[in-house]
Simulated scan of single mutants.
Amino acid sequence: MARVRLTVDGLTEAAGVLADQVGFENVTVAALARHFGVKDASLYAHLRNAADLRTRIALLAVDEFAGRVAAAVAGRAGRDALVAFADAYRTFALERPGLYAATQARIDPAITSTPPSYLRTIEMTYGMLRAYGLTEPDLTDAVRLLRSTFHGFCTLEANGGFAAERDVPASWERTVEALHVLLEHWPRAGTAAGTSAPTGAAPPHRVT
């Protein structure tokens, strides 16, 4: 990898690439210093500690992910938006495995406030699902379903977990299509339990 200037942004971008190569959990200040062929102390002029480095990688990851999803779903709704969102998610997870792992890391509020790109991703997800006529608590339930399905599928694919001869991209397309059908026929909260769901609720700014 070509050397970059030892700046906070340059180090963060390099750490993101390193995470893709060796895994997010293996990126440390020492590993990054070895990558540049310098002493650890050279990086501490720009980074406070390992937690600071990991937080910066996570922020970079969330920002890139949000940008990809926003570009994919722009001007789309319903099934088209779902397919675009899903494909952007899978592409990011497979192309940038280290950064994808970083998006799953919890950002310590004591270190930094919730990044705008994270809130943007939440808003886009909830907005996409509102097009299916969902309101709370169904919105949050649907977000959790999509997140767990996408994460599980992409993690298994990346780890070589699909051994059957069936074409994996074909299975992905069928999975997304099945989610679309389910969202169109979502079992509303209260239909089985006898309670009614609140309407017009705003998406909560929290991990779902």
Rank of each mutant, 00 (worst) to 15 (best):
R96Q: 08
A178I: 09
V73C: 12
T195K: 10
A86W: 04
A81H: 11
T125W: 06
D108T: 04
E25I: 07
P116L: 13
G200H: 07
D40C: 05
H185Y: 13
R188P: 08
D141Y: 04
T7V: 01
C154W: 02
R76W: 03
A101D: 15
L43M: 00
A105R: 06
H151I: 12
A193L: 12
A45D: 04
A102G: 03
E64S: 07
L139P: 08
F85A: 15
L99N: 06
G98K: 05
A41I: 02
G23L: 04
M128Y: 08
G75A: 14
R120H: 12
L179M: 15
A77Q: 15
P187T: 04
K39E: 02
R76H: 12
T191R: 10
R166H: 09
A45E: 03
G16A: 00
P109M: 03
A189R: 11
L18T: 04
F36C: 04
R68M: 02
R130F: 11
M128T: 10
D20T: 01
A86P: 09
E177A: 15
R174H: 12
S42C: 02
Q21Y: 04
A201P: 03
M1E: 08
V207Y: 06
A192V: 15
P187M: 06
V27T: 05
P187C: 08
D20V: 03
V17K: 02
V207E: 11
L6V: 00
G127M: 00
A86V: 06
T114D: 14
R90G: 06
V143S: 07
G133Q: 04
D138P: 07
G75D: 09
R166K: 08
A15F: 00
T112M: 01
A41T: 03
T12G: 11
T114A: 14
A86I: 07
R106V: 13
A131Q: 15
R120T: 10
Y132M: 10
P187E: 04
A202Q: 13
T55H: 08
F65G: 09
A158F: 01
P198K: 12
P115H: 05
A61K: 06
A66M: 02
F36A: 05
A71P: 09
V8K: 07
T191V: 05
H185G: 13
H205W: 08
Q104M: 13
G152Y: 04
